[in-house]
Amino acid sequence: MKKSNKFRTLLTLLVAFAILINSAPVYAAMNNNEKSADTNNQMIVIDGSFLDWNDVPYSYEYNWDNPYKFENQWNPVTQKNETIYIMDANGKPYNTTIRHKMALYRDEKYVYLHIIMATNWYNSLNGNDYQFWCDGQMAAFQVGLPGGGTISNGSFGEGIHVVEVRHRDSSISGKVATGSQAVLKRGKGGINDELELKIPLAEFHRQNSKIDAADIRMLEFFTPNLMYRHIICAGTDTAPYVGIASCAIVAGVGCLFYKKKGKLTV
């Protein structure tokens, strides 16, 4: 192929590429219009509906181990001993009768947390000592009543209630985490309190200057009152620019090799 023809082919491809990608964001925006208007492009909205947590990974946490499988349990209906499994609506072992359901999510600006308290042994949300560990550095918060105070059985009646997130264990203990939001849903009979909250990552840095809010690789949540292990969300980047640089050297060497090809003789 002649050089001029090659250039024309390349030019045609590039113009087609430019037109194509110029039109693509328009279609993308059209598809996302509905969501953008409602949620300002956030995956989780702290509004007390809790439905947006259905798509987020969750786990059942506990302080004292309890089984989900009970063998030789008498079933009065079938009149015989059976094995009983404690499962949730998605068929996973455990449910909110015996363990706390927790989900952790983050985006570039916020961390989001969802907790449903277990029915057994707990009557209200325990909002004490919520620890967020960012690459080994901790920022601690307290979920409490508006204006201060601990959430208890008598704090609320049934329904949706706004609560507050405050700093703790630091020089700014007791101050409200700026930009945070938290909502508590108290169910019928005062069981299975459900909490959703979001905290700006910038507040982690405000409390602990060693935390770089713009570069948190591994973010962990732990509260000693409700769980024995951490729940974690982490990124898995490939460090693409280092890899590309290495590969570009290989390609560049190949190109230089080609340039010298005609001159090589044995």
Partner: peptide, 20 residues
Amino acid sequence: SASISLYIDLECSGIIEIMA
């Protein structure tokens, strides 16, 4: 000893390497 969510974002997806 933990439950972990791994986020596949732009830099994890391999799309940058593919474009390069």
